[in-house]
């Protein structure tokens, strides 16, 4: 198992957002987490990435216990995430965002930045090259010197994706990578994810768009009101009556998404 979640519960005051959630994902997969609005997906993502401490339970990444560790430690271990609402630093240029993404930079420690200026310059050069390659891959190269805040919503999501790649993570957690993105850019994002997966990247994706889920995911897990409802191959799971019921009961737009 690359990532395993064991008996995770999360209590917000009187609300039990997650109730003993357990599942695991293997390496070499795109793993999908779906569920109606408010079923606890983002809460779980926050726990996995260290932004929330679970009330109980364990998160294992490559066999290491991660629950309760601070987010930057988890990111350094190779588990990087994006946010449901894209938060790229707006008043930084696209290129600055990319360079920011690179992990373990010597120059990010002020003391070593002073003492090892040669090393810092070398790393900057290397990261700049890599950033240019990645921006080219997603077609953002022309926007390199523009402020991230001036990009369109879809472009911001793309930027968030390649920015995370700069860190060379072992597992990438995407919270709704295509939500609110126009259909043409959705195609681009899906294509990029599939391409990266062929290149050996692992993904953990939270998504409402069922077509995208079907096309991307090797395995999915359904959350409903803080409980795991089902886990398995997308076609089987999405055909199940109880999954359909959960979506219909929640009455969300996503309900139609299941049948689609």
């Amino acid at each position: 198992m690359l990532l395993a979640v064991e008996d995770i519960s999360m209590q917000f005051g009187g609300l039990r957002a997650l109730d003993k959630v357990s599942f695991g994902m293997k390496s070499g997969q795109i793993f999908g987490l779906i569920g109606p609005n408010g079923s606890g997906k983002t809460t779980l993502a926050n726990i996995i990435s260290g932004f929330l401490k679970p009330s109980s339970g364990r998160v294992l990444f490559e066999g290491q216990e991660m629950q309760g560790k601070p987010p930057h430690v988890i990111a350094e271990a190779g588990l990087c995430r994006t946010f449901q609402i894209t938060l790229n630093p707006r008043r930084m240029t696209v290129m600055e965002n990319m360079l920011l993404g690179a992990a373990r930079q010597t120059g990010e420690n002020i003391v070593s930045a002073m003492l090892q200026s040669r090393q810092v310059a070398r790393e900057e050069e290397r990261n700049l090259e890599r950033a240019r390659d990645l921006l080219e891959m997603v077609g953002l190269q022309r926007h390199a010197d523009e402020l991230a805040g001036s990009l369109s919503g879809g472009q911001k999501k793309l930027l968030a994706l390649v920015q995370v790649l700069m860190a060379e993570p072992k597992l990438i957690l995407l919270d709704e990578p295509v939500a609110g993105v126009n259909p043409r850019l959705i195609e681009d994002i899906v294509a990029v994810i599939l391409q990266l997966r062929r290149a050996g990247h692992n993904f953990f994706i939270i998504e409402h768009n069922m077509q995208v889920v079907r096309r991307l995911c090797d395995e999915i897990c359904v959350l409903d009101m803080g409980n795991v409802l089902a886990q398995g191959a997308p076609d089987e799971v999405l055909a199940r009556e109880d999954v359909l019921q959960a979506y219909i009961a929640s009455g969300g737009v996503a309900g139609e998404g299941v049948q689609a």
Binding site: H72, L87, P89, L100, R104, E108
Partner: peptide, 15 residues
């Protein structure tokens, strides 16, 4: 600068 813009993104990127 990233912290100024969004400390959450900075943390998520391992800073």
């Amino acid at each position: 600068k990233a912290i100024r813009e969004s400390d959450e993104v900075a943390q998520a990127l391992g800073k």
